[in-house]
Amino acid sequence: MVERVRVKALAPPGHVRAPWYLRGKAGVIERPLGHFANPEQLAYGLRADTKPLYRVRFRMAEIWGEAAENPDDTLDAEIYGHWLEKVDTHAP
């Protein structure tokens, strides 16, 4: 089953690993990677919760629109679960 997700379009200050160019962009989960310590806590010397991590695959057309070199080329990135929201494919 293909699971569509969108990277949250948030802009907190500080150390986060969700790249700017993917925020607000939708892709599909390529594979789950397991749980990892949250870098947003590790970076400040804090005890870290574990967070699920996913490889998400985006079409270049989704990221760059008309400016994409080739719309069907893809970009894979690792995104923590707390930066992802489900895309409802059944929405009207």
């Binding site: 969700a18 870098p39 991590l53 080329d73």
Partner: peptide, 11 residues
């Protein structure tokens, strides 16, 4: 097809 992989986290 070009597939780019951005090493953003633990992999």
């Amino acid at each position: 097809t070009v597939r780019v992989h951005d090493s953003t986290a633990d992999m």
